[in-house]
Design a protein around this nucleic acid. Structure first.
Lengths: 394, 394
DNA sequence: GGATAAAGTTAAGGAGCCTTACTAGAGGCG
DNA sequence: CGCCTCTAGTAAGGCTCCTTAACTTTATCC
């Protein structure tokens, strides 16, 4: 993990080589924030001297991480040569393995998507699913025209938690066979790309932080309500995982309400909406979407069911707020389409349940949150890797 | 805060001066971990060369942060000179302002307490309380024989949350008048020691992490049950504060149980135990302690009241576990004396409420948790400060 | 066209680290 | 007893990389 790497590196002594490398990294990061800048500007902003900036930038350019990108004429004086990070110095792969859809995207180091594919996930066996992931990813890489060797890192989002020791995904109840050991290793081997696996709710949270409504938040929680119930927590821009990677598994929250005590997951997920609607008197082939649509039309039983769902979500939000004190709670997942109906009742019930007032907002990325979160996470690592390898490569 | 300082410093460029300083810091920290070590040993452990270690250690010794402390004869070869951090290079002050007691302790940089005072807090006005803190702290410093100028930092623990902008403590309902603006500034001015103010449950958690049962935990929650209800969360050795410093304010958790829905704080705190016992039929002048004592004697109404309390605490633990995924939950505060009665029912109820299995343990520090947490926190900053000032001083 | 201002380069100097080679001291062994 | 070995610590020299200061280049303004 990048985080632990950083900690280890801090424990290492600071020889001159590290000093140079750190300064190059500082310049590269600053350049990413600024987009493009001249050497003089970088010298002013970083506090480094102009000669140092010149030489460090030259070595970054020699490694292909940075290139001239134009000029800028100041009010008066010599025109400046602008430098910017080279987005093509590496690529990152993001994969969202959902129950209904498999999504794959490839992004350059700037975070711009260069290729993407969304295919229905009809796989019924673990082997079929692994194959589908491999072929789709290969197709995306081929479509992009990017050299596969330039794809330096990938992140897969999936329900459940990846167990490094057993080399398998656990608790992924809604994906048949996906829990088998060694599957991820197989995908990694066939693609030839280093892969990490993360929980989908966590990635969705990171996605909203990087590209969506969570930008700038100190601490926010992304609540993913759909087939299951999950929460991702992003604190100071980094994922809060808990001691065993199970933080935010709010499906396990105790639930003392109607219709019966039990686990919150059973009371909030999509199935529960259907159950509630049926209990209130609705008939026929029901899906969560159908109930929400009916409520939007004013069907009284559906409205009651949606109201109950809002109350339950509010309970979740209130519990998370009391423990975590977020400044923002994002509602996403399968209910994303129905946030228009839920937002007001959730806000009202939260107000009644707790004096804490986190901002409650709908997901901005919708269905893409997990995929974009995977891309963002892969990008983080890819940027590190590309920098680390700048000397080793050729 | 030290954390934000560290982040800012990482943004600064790495000139040689910083390099030297970082290496000196590395040596000092390693020395603290080892207790005492020779120059050759430090060179091996840090990866620095022997001459570098010698020169850095010499400059640390010149600054008074480190001194020779003995010799060590290896199996064969020249005897080594051992160096160790000088504990007297600075002192840290910890203060626990509780409803019943005011506790003050002074520790050297090794973390050894050199003086301490516990006095009853009978102050009924804010001015009286501020005076009591000042006089008690002065007395402790005098008793220790330490030069007041050597006390480089202090931390005060109190119920509620300190608001930096308004310069006052908020939500401290159980301390009359303590919420007035400027009180802390007054104490700081009269003592001449830089002071931070933190929530008592948070400090207790840090105390258990530094000196108690939380040592080595990746993520643990300290639940403080007494006059109020609070929780401190320590993640990777650092406090998890939330977006507004209100993380762990589990008094705000919604509570759907008997006797009536409402806030958890009202259902779990000491008062609630008395209320429950009275409802179950107990008579007379009751305190929480009296109820627990009666239960220990086998009084049936008291046993039922304690059982209910256990159930409520279990609810708290289960909620915290589902959101945070801690590997350890510590029970402390006023109920510390009664953990023998509560531990088993809490564990059993948690088992029934959630599949998550955090270790549940009683506080090891008991009444001293807040005070020791304040000392530990002040020590962290004091060590930084002493190091920063090593060149400026004299 | 000269003054001014900003970007960028060159040259000199210095801080700090490492390597190598040495001295210092302690014990083992013939 | 003298020599060898092993470890601690010091000294000298060299290397890397940063900074300062002066200088060149290129633009605008008057």
């Amino acid at each position: 993990m990048p985080a632990s790497d950083a900690v280890e590196q801090q424990e290492q002594p600071w020889s001159r080589r590290r000093l140079r490398s750190t300064n190059e990294r500082l310049l590269l990061d600053r350049l990413r924030g600024l987009g493009a800048a001249s050497r003089a500007q970088l010298a002013r902003e970083t506090g480094l001297s102009k000669p140092t900036v010149s030489s460090a930038l030259a070595s970054l350019a020699a490694a292909g991480l940075v290139h001239e990108v134009g000029t800028h004429a100041p009010e008066r004086g010599r025109t400046a040569v602008l430098y910017a990070p080279d987005p093509a110095a590496g690529y990152a792969l993001g994969v969202d393995i959902g129950r209904g859809w498999l999504r794959v995207a490839l992004a350059d180091l700037d975070g711009t998507l260069v290729a993407r594919a969304d295919v229905r996930n009809r796989a019924r066996t673990s082997a079929a699913l692994a194959d589908l992931v491999v072929t789709t990813a290969r197709q995306v890489m081929a479509n992009s025209g990017v050299d596969p060797a330039a794809v330096v890192h990938g992140v897969i989002g999936t329900p459940g938690v990846y167990d490094e020791k057993q080399r398998r995904v656990r608790y992924a109840m809604h994906l048949p066979g996906w829990g088998r050991a060694g599957l991820v290793d197989r995908v990694r081997a066939e693609l030839g790309v280093p892969l990490e696996v993360h929980n989908d709710a966590n990635l969705a949270a990171l996605g909203e932080h990087a590209f969506g409504v969570g930008a700038g938040s100190r601490l926010f929680a992304y609540i993913m309500i759909g087939t299951g119930l999950g929460m991702g927590i992003v604190s100071e821009g980094r994922l809060f995982t808990g001691a065993h990677g199970l933080a935010g598994e709010i499906g396990f929250l105790p639930w003392h309400g109607r219709p019966k005590p039990g686990r919150l997951e059973d009371a909030v997920s999509g199935v529960a909406v259907v159950e509630a609607a049926r209990e209130f008197g609705m008939r026929g082939q029901l899906t969560a979407k159908a109930v929400f649509d009916a409520a939007r039309q004013g069907h009284p039983d559906a409205v009651r069911a949606v109201g109950l769902e809002g109350e339950r979500i509010a309970h979740t939000v209130a519990a998370a707020a009391a423990v975590l004190d977020p400044d923002l709670v994002v509602l996403g997942g399968g209910v994303g389409h129905s946030v228009d109906l839920l937002l007001r009742p959730v806000r009202e019930h939260v107000r009644a349940l707790t004096p804490l007032r986190p901002r409650i907002a709908p997901s901005r990325l919708g269905e893409d949150a997990v995929l974009l979160g995977a891309v963002a996470t892969a990008l983080d690592t890819a940027r590190d890797l590309v920098f680390e390898r700048r000397t080793a490569g050729t």
